[in-house]
Design a protein around this nucleic acid. Structure first.
Lengths: 248, 248
DNA sequence: TGTACATCAGTGAACGCGCGTTCACTGATGTAC
DNA sequence: TGTACATCAGTGAACGCGCGTTCACTGATGTAC
């Protein structure tokens, strides 16, 4: 029996879902919550059925009532975490004024770094080594969220493109250099964007991912006392390099 | 008994090392070789005493004659791998003409990426998640090799600095922003370099590490069909941004 | 409102696995006289 | 050259651990008449 006891007085009125179905959804949610907490404190390796069950006061095999096997649980977690990251950066992007592309790019990038520092183990789960023994399902574990992040990146490049395209006159990139699945998402959203801009988006991703992953994995801390300053400098130079005017 | 049988006819002349000592060194080397091979095929997780012993035709506990515990073996491996990376990038740097800073930077960067792609599991061992259960010794597992890579990076920035320093007039970095241990190595080697140049070195590291780690961990492959082209574009734009003249 | 049945979330014991590590030991190699 | 002893690389069995997964089961909850 789960440790969580459901408030007995929930009105049984309202459409659809019976009590059992509700309990089931709650237990599923708790399994994921506990798994994420274990991951946050012990890293992706700590996601084991037995540890989750121990934490919840159940037996390990009870989890098989909710997930057919451990790998399915991990796949779900990766999806959830990836989605949380996509939500965070999208929200930051939307919150910055449309009229100030520099501010939007900085907001996106800072949200990316902040999320990674607050959820370092989540960052590892997504971008680092897979959980030991984990076999990702066909098509990758989190195509949707990954695509969302990637589309967000393209929006960054698109915002910069009017100011920066003159730097890429002689670019040799064409559409065949990119994954068709990526283009299916990106081209309808940004019909005027040339291949060079998509390449720029991936390069910007590299810049951000590089500093952030070095910081998350502790390699920056042994070099600089203020990784944040370094990241902000990177951002400033990026904006400058892209030729985007500041202010609104 | 190790599978490797030593050629019995090695002249026992020559100074010092007795037969036992030689055998011991050879077995130690074979343990490391087998461990690295296991890592290359199965990732850092595959480095287990039992697997190594199995591969060598010994029992697992025999390895305790060479390494006091598993973590010491892993520490040694990290050091070896890190040193191999440092050797590779240093050699590429030295091979390019001193008179052509752009070529030297490109050589260093390409060697970095090539090494990572040839030794993806080594890259993970160094820069990724630690081996499950691995506890790094105090002071980090590979300070020497890490410092070598870092000094190499500073050399990159130093080569670029004469051309690029005008971009960093208003830099707010000072020496207190960096780790004293890093500066002890870097400042004597490059006495004229200001703090802003060290920050530039770390940023360049971020650029390279970002694209390379995305590629090694398979995140680029789902976006672009030619990560190499992207990397070369990144390098070209970096050289351009640094204002380094091309050609010799 | 009461009874008979179906559902299904969870238990508890067990399986087989690979792991790091410890222990007492054996047998070959090297060394001192 | 021969013998007695020390060294030490390796064995083989065992310990205790945590893991994913399977199995037959129990007992409470929900449903149909």
């Amino acid at each position: 029996m789960p440790v969580v006891t459901v408030t007995g007085s929930v009105g049984s009125a309202g459409g659809g879902k019976g009590r059992r179905e509700r309990l089931r959804a709650e237990t599923t949610a708790e399994i994921k919550k506990v798994a994420l907490a274990l991951m946050a404190s012990g890293g992706p390796d700590a996601i084991t059925l037995r540890a989750i069950a121990r934490e919840m006061g159940m037996t390990a095999n009870a989890i098989y009532g909710y997930f057919p096997a451990r790998d399915d649980l991990v796949t779900t977690l990766i999806n959830d975490v990836y989605t949380a990251l996509a939500d965070a950066v999208d929200a930051a992007w939307e919150a910055a004024p449309v009229t100030d592309p520099a501010a939007r790019i900085e907001a996106w990038a800072n949200a990316f770094r902040t999320w990674a520092l607050v959820n370092p183990q989540g960052f590892r789960l997504i971008y680092g080594d897979p959980v030991p023994g984990y076999q990702a399902p066909e098509g990758g574990p989190a195509p949707d969220a990954a695509r969302r992040v990637c589309t967000g990146l393209t929006a960054l490049a698109a915002a910069a493109w009017p100011h920066t395209q003159h730097l890429y006159e002689g670019s040799t990139f064409d559409w065949s250099d990119f994954d068709p699945g990526l283009l299916d998402k990106v081209r309808p959203a940004f019909p005027d964007l040339p291949p060079a801009a998509v390449a720029l988006a991936l390069r910007m991703w590299g810049h951000l991912h590089g500093l952030v992953s070095l910081e998350v994995y502790g390699h920056l801390r042994t070099q600089t006392t203020s990784p944040q300053k370094l990241f902000l400098e990177e951002l400033g130079q990026l904006i400058k390099m892209l030729g985007i005017p500041r202010g609104r």
